[in-house]
Amino acid sequence: MIVSRPSIYIYVNHPDGDTLREVHSGIEEEGVFYEVIERGEDNVNRLAYDAANDSMLGSGIGILGNTVAFQIRGVEYGKNVEQYENPTKNQSRIIGANSARAIKKQSFK
């Protein structure tokens, strides 16, 4: 039997290194698992939407180049919960933390 850890999916396509690093730091600080998966998709809405739907926890992040979007399963396609173009380090950290806090039912930062 293959058992995968319940984790937040981060679907990426040529992600900016700093952005990705800060996003998963944010998730790790909140104590939730994450997986980074490379996808050949050039629509950040699609990346985030698929990540959220494929994640067992229902929370996903899409990073396309230097655009980052956070989506929750059940929320309409294209209506991302949070999204940044060229985020600062702190914004990336917060979007990661929020994707984890959504699962923990804690208020967003």
């Binding site: 929750i72 059940g74 929320v75 309409e76 209506k79 919960v81 949070e82 806090r101 959504a102 039912k105 804690q106 208020s107 967003f108």
Partner: peptide
């Protein structure tokens, strides 16, 4: 606001909403 789709009233009743609640209210 317990999820983007439902909230728990102070009397314990739970209300579901059709459109997702603004994320600013999440967990608040």
């Amino acid at each position: 606001v317990e999820s983007l789709f439902h909230m728990r009233m102070e009397n314990g009743q739970i209300t579901f909403v059709e459109d997702s609640i603004d994320p600013r209210f999440f967990g608040r």
